[in-house]
Computed example of a mutant assay.
Amino acid sequence: MPKIKWTNKDFNVFHIDGLEQRMDALNSSVRPKFQLLGEDFSAYFSSHLGEEFYPHVAKHARRTVNPPNDSWVAFAPYKRGYKSLPHFQIGLWSTHLFIVLAIIYEAPEKNVMAQHLMANKAILGQLPEDFIVSGDHMSPEAFPLQTAKEDKLDELLLRLRDVKKGEFLVGRHIPKEQAIKLTASQIHQITEETFSHLLPIYNVIVGK
């Protein structure tokens, strides 16, 4: 088990001005942690889902001016990429740690994935009370699942199905102030526990 502890320094990377300066800080302090988590949890997903999963640490390679506001490691059963598939992520914004399952707009079969979720929506209601949902992977904002179940959840799933830019993310957001107090063992436990709740959702999405 990798000893990963998140610190103020990790979250404050996203307050550094300038693309080159922020990328240097990301590469020196945050990416090595994502790489270790990638090795660990790709084996976890491969074991639990019965096919080989690969880690993809964000490179932010296309950026030429604006520095990234978040960063992550993603997991998917495809070595060359993850954006076209439902995927798991561990990542940071300046405000929080996120541990999520995501379908983003690049997924060509996202309308089918949405239909699977809509037909099995009750499984989302079984998730822990502190889980969140979101319709935009490029925004740090999210909705508490408990309140979203009233009407927002339907709206997000319909948008995922019918709108080209529709997305769906579900999982946990852990505020920075809480995350930096967690030990490496606690972080690993929370991350694994979060993913254990998301595995059945993934199976619904892919039609298993």
Rank of each mutant, 00 (worst) to 15 (best):
T183C: 00
H116W: 06
H96E: 13
F34V: 05
M23F: 09
K33Y: 07
Q146M: 14
A148M: 12
L97Q: 07
R22V: 12
Q186V: 05
N8K: 00
A122Y: 11
R172Y: 05
P108V: 12
P175V: 06
I99L: 15
G166H: 07
A114G: 14
F131V: 14
I190Q: 11
H87Y: 15
W6M: 05
Q189D: 12
P2F: 10
Y202L: 04
N69R: 05
A148Y: 13
R62W: 14
I16D: 06
P32A: 12
T191F: 02
A74Q: 05
A61Q: 15
N69W: 03
A76C: 09
K59N: 14
S134A: 15
H87R: 08
E106I: 06
H60K: 12
L158R: 09
R62F: 09
R22Q: 13
A58M: 10
A25H: 06
K9T: 15
S29I: 10
Y54E: 08
K5F: 06
Q126H: 10
D17T: 08
V170P: 00
G166I: 13
F98N: 03
A142R: 04
W93G: 02
Y105V: 01
A107P: 13
E106C: 01
A74I: 04
T7F: 09
Q115K: 10
I205Y: 08
R159M: 08
P77I: 02
T194W: 01
T64M: 15
A76M: 11
H56Q: 14
E39P: 00
A58R: 04
H87T: 09
N111Y: 07
H137G: 13
Q189I: 01
V112K: 12
N111S: 14
Y78D: 14
D70M: 04
E150R: 08
G18R: 04
I123D: 07
P144Q: 12
P175C: 05
V65H: 09
H137N: 14
N203P: 00
H48D: 08
N203L: 14
K164R: 07
Q189T: 04
G81M: 06
I201G: 11
H15Q: 10
S29Q: 09
Y54H: 10
D17K: 07
K121R: 14
S42P: 06
P55Q: 14
L49V: 09
E193T: 07
F98I: 07
F168K: 05
L169W: 02
P144E: 15
L182H: 02
P68Y: 11
T95C: 01
V170C: 03
L199A: 02
F195Q: 04
A184H: 05
I16G: 03
E177M: 01
S134M: 11
E193L: 01
M1K: 07
V30G: 08
R172W: 08
M1G: 13
F14D: 02
L85D: 03
E177P: 00
I99F: 03
H116T: 07
